[in-house]
Each structure stands twice: as structure tokens, then as C-alpha cells.
Amino acid sequence: MKLGNLIIAGVVTGSIYATFAVCVAVWYRVSNILNLAVGDFAMVGALCVDNLYRVRGLPLWAAIVTTLLVVAVFAWLYDIIVLRLAVDGRGRAEGIVLTFFFTFALSFFIDGVAKMAFGSDVHAAPALWNGASIAMADLHVARAGILVLACAVLIGGLFWVYIRFTLGGKALEASGENALGARIVGIDTRRYRRWIFVGTAVIAAVFGIVESPITGYTYLSGATISLTGFLAAAYGGFRKPGRALLAGLFIGVLEALLGGYVSAEYGTTVMYAILAALVLAWPRGLGFESAVSG
């Protein structure tokens, strides 16, 4: 049952990519900025909890709460200081500078601070649900994996309910569809930009905390997760969260299968090659055109 186990592992990683891809896509719709720092927030979540719990001796719950608060406050400050100056000011940044530059810089900044604070060794937050992996027939699921899936389903479900059944959620969609039309009915698109960014950072940190017992994190782990989430969002044209979700799951499973059947060492490289080939083969079908034309 190697195949089954690989698919399960792939779905677990894929659900993280999917969640991050949805976060990237939703925020891009509202702000026209691609969040390249989403994985770094996950890394901070894992390493900060580890540091507070293991090194500084805080109780686990206090370490988690403190970490999430730090991440939320940092994201909020970043928005009101950097993004407000860069995007809302009179000398408004536009085009590719706006789309990539600020979050790219943020990613490097977070990595640098994390290296100073947590060192460069592999660490992980303590497992929240201890015990051997759960076995059904020949299939094995790590307990942390179940928690990751549960988080993904819970967060995705709450978001779906918010979009579908609340006026605030519809207003969020409206600001993504037509910023001008949104302002006409009094929707504050800047407030959505701020709170989705903060929410994304916290969600990423939660996933980092829950997932890190499986893989372990260094201060550089964030960039890889960001890249994969970013790619999944790209397959959804950056503006279609539903497609981004499917793409995230697909990439997760592909990664696991390549790692299992092709090469554990070069699996990721082969995966990126396949993804690049897919983009070359069907740029329109995969939604890249809508990403380019905005």
C-alpha cells in the first residue's frame, strides 16, 4: 500500500499548499499584491513556539498564544506602516513593484530575524497530539497530519460560510471583483486588505505549528512553502481561490508520488520541472492569462 500512503501524505502537504494558495489568491484579489511571505509566517509559528516552549520554558498553550499574537501584531504593523505608505500614499507604488517588491522584502526580513532569534538548526514545535501514527489496514496517517487536515477543513469551511452567507463576505468578494464598484457602496477595501493579511499570517503560523512535527523547520523553510503555495495560486490565475485549492492538493500529491517513486532527493526538482512544463503546455487552460491581464 505504498501508493495509498503516499497519497495520504500528499494530501496532507497538499492541504497546506491549498490553504496558502487560497490565502494568496484572496489577498491578491483585494490588494493586487502577491503575498510571498506566507510561508515565512508558518516558519515563524513553528520556530517561535519551539523557542518559547523548549528554551524559555513557557507552558505550551502560552507559547502558542504568544506566538500567534506576535505574528498578528507584526502583520498588522507591517500593513499600517509599510503597505499604507507604499500603497495608500500619494506616491503610490504600482505595477510589478507593488505586486512583488514589498512582500519579497518582507520574506527576507523575516528570514533574517528568524536566523538571529532561533539559529539555523532544524527545530519543530512539540507535537500537539502524541502517539504513533494511526493505522487502517496498511494505511498509516500521522496524527499531526490529521490535525493539519482538520485545520484546513475547518478554516476552509469557515471561510466558505463567511463568503457565502454574510454581507461582509460578499463585500470581500466585491472588493476583489471591482474595487471602484466596492467603494461606491461604502466598502472599505483597505480594511479588507489589512485584516486578510493579518488573518493569513495567523493561519500560516497555525499550520506551521501543527505541521512542523512531521517535517521540521529551519529559518529557510518558509521560502519553499511560499513558492509552492504561490505556484498553486498561479495555476488558479491568482484570482480563483477554488482552482488554487485544487492546484494546491494536486501539487502536494504530485510531490509525494515523485518523492516516493522517482527520487527522494530529486523529487522536488522533477516536480518543478513538471509544473513549468504544464504552464508552457496550457497557459490559458491553467489560468495564467487571467493572471497576466489582471
Binding site: L167, G168, K170, E173, A174, E177, I184, G186
Partner: peptide
């Protein structure tokens, strides 16, 4: 300046956003 991917009903009810947050 409508929201092209939302339904007509959603477009209309979003007008109410000026004075309420409750759907």
C-alpha cells in the same frame, strides 16, 4: 461598475452595505 462574477442578487444586496453589515 458591477461585480461581474457575483449573482445579480448579490450585486443588489451589496447596496445595503452602506447602512448595515447584517445580511
Amino acid at each position: 461598475q458591477l461585480y461581474p462574477d457575483l449573482s445579480a442578487w448579490d450585486n443588489v444586496i451589496l447596496g445595503c452595505y452602506t447602512w448595515t453589515r447584517s445580511i
